[in-house]
Amino acid sequence: MSTDEKVERHTIAILVDNEAGVLARVVGLFSGRGYNIESLTVGEVDQAEHTSRITVVTAGTPMVIEQIKAQLDRLVPVHKVMDLTVETNSVEREMALVKVAGTGERRVEALRLSDAFRARVIDTTHTSFVFEVTGTSSKIDAFIGLMRPLGLVDVSRTGVVAIARGPEAM
């Protein structure tokens, strides 16, 4: 039954109490039950309230996605779980730092393309650039793909953060 269904990609936001080990609980849930993690980000969002927000991008059949949300929700330190892919209209962003080394024509081409992606140069030497690029994950994938033949040497990505559109809190 569940195996016949199509695999979907979902972005899930989890508001948690910022207590020791809470990230291990969330990650352990995914590994222990065999769910995918495509991307994971975490950061404290309210210092006074001691809450952190975890954003997970995962993939599974609709039944598995339901399971993931229900399993997350029953973790004791979890305040709220929100599926940003189905419940609301939402926006997603990821940032990457991309290091490209080279000289001459390739270097010029890298700079020209970075402009098209609205990437910023945040470090430069005579033989390298570090670009900061922000956007959806697929935009970043595309940028990295273009940089590969131009001397890509290093990539660091933040993972996806996402938030619902409109005036309401999570």
């Binding site: 039954m1 039944m63 339901e66 399971q67 229900a70 399993q71 929700d73 029953r74």
Partner: peptide
């Protein structure tokens, strides 16, 4: 009482 038990193995 556990929402995660519902629709876990059986629809």
């Amino acid at each position: 009482i556990d929402a995660s038990s519902i629709n876990k193995n059986v629809r």
